[in-house]
């Protein structure tokens, strides 16, 4: 029972980064491997607000989220749009965006190392027990997953309940057909990419309340987000949420029953099962 709840709490926070990546890959068609660095940047923001300003880390969202939105919008417009335009096929675009975002990822890590140094950073926020069904859990984890659930709910409403959200879903299904019904595909793509970055940075704030981070840890989260997105099915918000919960559970089970050093192996095992049996994702439709 402990494992189940801890796993679900962890999975709920993972869903934020997965939805961020899902918006970027599923809609804007950019496999953004610099996603994890955006998360670390968000976590740095929360760390700074808490230690230097002695405010609640969640207040960092006031500047981190708009900042990440603007930065990602710029990245898409300036760096990625030219690649989309010159690519001859989807495969070419994937190779080029993978290389370009690898470059961005390393450049971000380099800059963050310059600015913040290579040390671990952590802070203690709400580190007190909170009882669920009689067993104690860290209050920070409970609050973090509650915040994640609220953000996920807002996004779900945004994507499924508004006109812009409908345009986003249309582009996710077929960019060419979307432009036939007067959807400005480049604008919607840029919007989704920026929104994805903002969600990921928010995920960084949430995760920083209970995880220790350093400048070069981003790639670990990129990896997890990628596995979740593929498991859930590309561009599928519901699938991403369920896959996050599965990953959170699997990691917690392995960490508590076998060895905490094998969490990546647990994630890989899931990834391998998906690749072998359901490469189109849990809820994806098999392509002919």
């Amino acid at each position: 029972m402990d494992i189940l709840i801890t796993g679900l709490l962890l999975g709920a926070t993972y869903s934020l980064i997965a939805i961020g990546l899902s918006l970027q890959y599923g809609v804007a068609r950019i496999m953004n491997l610099a996603n994890g660095e955006m998360l670390v940047a968000g976590a740095f923001g929360a760390f700074w607000v808490f230690t230097a300003q002695t405010l609640s880390p969640f207040t960092a969202a006031l500047f981190v989220v708009p900042g990440a939105f603007a930065l990602n919008w710029l990245i898409y417009r300036v760096l990625l749009r030219p690649l989309v335009r010159r690519a001859k096929s989807r495969g070419m675009l994937e190779v080029e965006t993978i290389l370009a975002t690898f470059g961005m990822s390393f450049a971000f890590v380099g800059i963050m190392l310059l600015v913040f140094g290579g040390s671990y950073f952590t802070y203690s926020y709400l580190a007190e027990p909170y009882r669920i069904l009689g067993s104690p859990y860290g209050l920070n984890r409970v609050v973090a997953s509650a915040v994640a659930v609220v953000i996920c709910g807002l996004l779900y409403w945004g994507v499924h309940g508004t006109r812009t959200g409908m345009a986003i879903r249309a582009v996710a299904v077929d960019p060419a057909a979307a432009s036939l019904v007067a959807i400005d595909v480049p604008r919607v793509s840029a919007l989704s990419f920026a929104l994805g970055g903002a969600v990921t940075a928010a995920g960084g704030i949430v995760l920083s309340t209970f995880l220790t981070m350093d400048a070069s840890i981003g790639v670990v989260f990129t990896m997890k987000a990628l596995i979740i997105v593929i498991m859930g099915g590309v561009g599928d918000v519901r699938g991403a949420i369920i896959a996050s919960l599965i990953l959170g559970l699997a990691e917690t089970v392995v960490a508590s029953l076998i060895d905490p050093g094998l969490t990546l192996a647990a994630a890989y095992l899931l990834f391998l099962l998906v690749l072998l049996f359901r490469p189109e994702g849990l809820f994806g439709r098999r392509q002919s």
């Binding site: 290389l99 690898f102 470059g103 390393f106 450049a107 890590v109 380099g110 310059l114």
Partner: peptide
């Protein structure tokens, strides 16, 4: 790390 990043972008 920064060198790797710049090289990829170049």
């Amino acid at each position: 790390v920064l060198l790797l990043g710049i090289a990829f972008l170049l």
